[in-house]
Design a binder for these strands. Structure first.
Lengths: 212, 212
DNA sequence: ATAGCTTTGTGAAGAATTTCACAAGCCCTC
DNA sequence: GAGGGCTTGTGAAATTCTTCACAAAGCTAT
């Protein structure tokens, strides 16, 4: 459906995601068209960047007019693969896992939380949102038997690689990790890592080497 | 102290942060030296990249031997500005703010949480970790009167820009935002945004355009 | 239908980042 | 103290990403 003739940069995909968010907002208030300049200002980028990003996937705009808000919204959803419901599991029922399990953004964008796992016996069996916390020892079996697309890891760094090896063996296809460690996975598995310490240290560096 | 003759890329800073994490681990188990190759494998990058990144700041290694683990750890802490205690406030006492307030990584790396703020009267006054939740209306005053370096935003997108404007006016120097929106700030303010929807959509895109 | 204003789509230029490749340097052994 | 085996530090090459700049095209008004 989408035609990735060229490899699409990760930075481009991140921006597409941002364009989508703002287009949804514009669509919600009934705006019919938006120019690359308007989108760029909303997203904090440049008009040329917006046009280039979109041009990788086709010609959606009208010269002199801009982009049709509603159509482009649909098109971006399709490009980003949001047309279908992805099934995700959350691994780790601590504070972060808790915040994630209740995060409305998941459902809003078609990500269904089909399971929550922990290794702590005290947490197993408790209700969490719609799900019940299950024993992490069941994770691999569940992943291979049910259809699970994405695993979200909210567990300590030292447990992460072990869990990754298990779920990769069980056929997971993508991982979003909040564990502050780098993960080894086969090349066909998509992985993103969110590392708060890294973000904070980036700010610390910026404060130290500029604003001083 | 550190000598940023050239502008340092953000990607480089992120990797420095990762090198630091693994070096701390190696230091903890008493390893004396580490080669660029070993660090690269741990961090999932290349030896050349490791050497290039470090070379922006000096020559820390010994040819034939590698890098002195303990010294380089110290040096990286200094480069990243972790020698001092940064004071941070958390804005938004919801699930994410809660996870953040109790996040040990902050204190471990010298980030002191000196305040938690919310606009919900039911939350104001409750104890949160060491802090008590304060009224968000006091935030700007507190930022300008106390010494606050970094604000961590865990609030809805629609409230974010308003809070940003207030704390920028009050003299904040850096912002870490979990609000899924782009923030307008003057150029001397450092900003990082963590956007979960964006990460998930990146995975969705990858699943759609490859693994299919 | 034409003129004038606007905005897209896109090669080409430019900038930034990563990778290459190798001389220089350090350690150990003989 | 000379030779061999490693590993760093770094210009230069390669690659990737962003910005430029302009022809092509749509809309409105006359």
């Amino acid at each position: 459906m989408t035609l990735p003739h060229k490899r699409i940069a990760e930075s481009t995909v991140r921006r597409l995601s941002m364009y989508l968010r703002y287009l949804e907002g514009l669509d919600g208030v009934g705006q019919k068209t938006a120019s690359s300049d308007e989108l760029a200002q909303l997203c904090g980028t440049t008009p040329a960047q917006v046009r280039k990003d979109l041009s990788f996937f086709g010609s959606f705009g009208k010269r002199g007019l801009g982009y049709p808000v509603h159509d482009l919204t649909d098109r971006l959803r399709e490009i980003l693969g949001l047309g279908q419901a992805w099934q995700i599991v959350i691994v780790g029922a601590g504070k972060i896992g808790s915040a994630l399990a209740e995060y409305r953004g998941f459902r809003q964008r078609g990500f269904q939380v089909v399971g929550v796992y922990d290794k702590n016996p005290e947490k197993i069996g408790r209700a969490w949102g719609d799900a019940v916390v299950r024993d992490i020892d069941e994770l691999a079996t569940d992943v291979s038997e049910q259809h699970v697309d994405i695993a979200v890891l909210a567990i300590p760094a030292e447990d992460a690689q072990d869990v990754v090896d298990q779920i990769v063996g069980a056929g997971i296809r993508a991982i979003l990790s909040f564990a502050p460690t780098s993960l080894r996975v086969p090349p066909h598995i998509a992985v993103k890592t969110v590392n708060m310490a890294m973000e904070l240290e980036g700010l610390s560096f910026a404060l130290t080497n500029r604003g001083a």
